[in-house]
Write a protein that binds this DNA or RNA. Structure first.
Lengths: 208, 208
DNA sequence: GCGCAGAACGAACGATCGTGCTTTTTTGTA
DNA sequence: TACAAAAAAGCACGATCGTTCGTTCTGCGC
């Protein structure tokens, strides 16, 4: 049963790439099969329905996201270092990963009002991820490294905004300064959260 | 030639709604015609191709955006009031407008790597809009209301992030606190930009 | 070597996609 | 009121969509 899993994995790999460019519904079984030099029906048999395929693609991408972003970041010491690791690895994910940008960003906009199990699964993943960010901030507060007035949920939404703005500036507008500005925005966010005694380590962040 | 323009307008109205939910490529001529109780070919004759329809939809939405957001905001006095008007009207647009959220957000993610005239038109619109924000900040600086170190381009990307994060939190996650957090993020952004003598008028923004 | 399960295939299905035609209906005006 | 122009409809096309079915190939335990 190793052969089946092998092709299944390579299907999901390529499917995630395609979906990040064309969306989960723009992803088509026929063209996916062509690219992998499989028959449509042979590929189809692995999943049984397109909806199942879409969910498995999300699942597959989430596993990789956890491996490349979440888990390594959580190994960093709590407080600013861990937050910075989250940000940098997340940025790398959005930058280097698939050619079509982050699959979750594409899926989030595509599914935001299309009810169904695919959307439900995506929402669950996003909530999980925001929870990781929130808990990281909360832990930093409890450790005395972040101000007690800092708001974890606010920080999480703000950080998400930094990443989405990067995605927009870099991918749609092809702005070469997008990453630099994302970093500056993140540092400003972080500087506002750390306690004065743990002043920012990097150069002063004056603008915005 | 009034009748033709009438139906054409109502086609574009409904098409913009549909496209905000299903995307510009998810938008389908057949279903659009059904909803408007037109024949597929009758509707099609107005545009000649689906690509033209997509571009006209963008054009149509951009005109409405200018009318509802840009122009009114530019009538406010320069500096913080104008910036606040931009933000609030933009937020209203994303909130109230079409049932599927902001069409430009959907299109931005959908088209970010699908070259062609539709993408080109969208990029032009987005650049224009970011330019308005940048110039607004720049004018505020020149008027002495914003710090001279403030970075207009940085502010524009950051503000875009606030809006995108709102969109994500409100539309995908159905977070009822999304708008409140977006406002807080905006006020923090603004507070960091205004000159100390023009201190924030609203309550102190401590968190984040 | 035989038999069996899983994997892949080829062909076909109904539906719908965007897009051409030709014909009919509606509209504005002389 | 008649008539040209514009708008809408009707019909058909090739392609592609997701899906189903029966068949063939492949690898592995007995």
């Amino acid at each position: 049963m190793s052969k089946g899993l092998d092709t299944r994995t390579s299907i999901l790999d390529r499917a995630a790439e395609l979906a990040s460019q064309l969306g989960l519904s723009g992803l088509t079984i026929g063209s996916l099969a062509d690219e992998l030099e499989l028959s449509k029906s042979g590929l189809f048999a692995h999943f049984g329905s397109k909806e199942t395929l879409q969910i498995q693609v999300l699942e597959h991408a989430a596993a990789e996201f956890a491996e490349q972003v979440v888990l390594p970041a959580l190994r960093e010491p709590r407080g600013a270092p861990r937050l910075r690791a989250i940000f940098e690895r997340w940025l790398d994910w959005a930058r280097g990963g698939p050619p079509g940008g982050c699959l979750f960003v594409a899926a989030a906009v595509e599914l935001d009002d299309r009810p169904g199990p695919v959307r439900d699964r995506l929402v669950a993943f996003q909530r999980q991820w925001l929870d990781v960010i929130r808990r990281t901030v909360q832990l930093g507060i409890e450790a005395g490294r972040f101000r007690s007035e800092a708001d974890p949920a606010q920080f999480a939404q703000d950080l998400y905004g930094v990443m989405l703005a990067y995605h927009h500036a870099a991918r749609l507008l092809r702005d070469p300064a997008a990453a630099k500005r994302a970093r500056r925005a993140f540092e400003a966010l972080l500087a506002a959260a750390v306690t004065p005694s743990h002043a920012p380590r990097r150069g002063r962040v004056t603008s915005t």
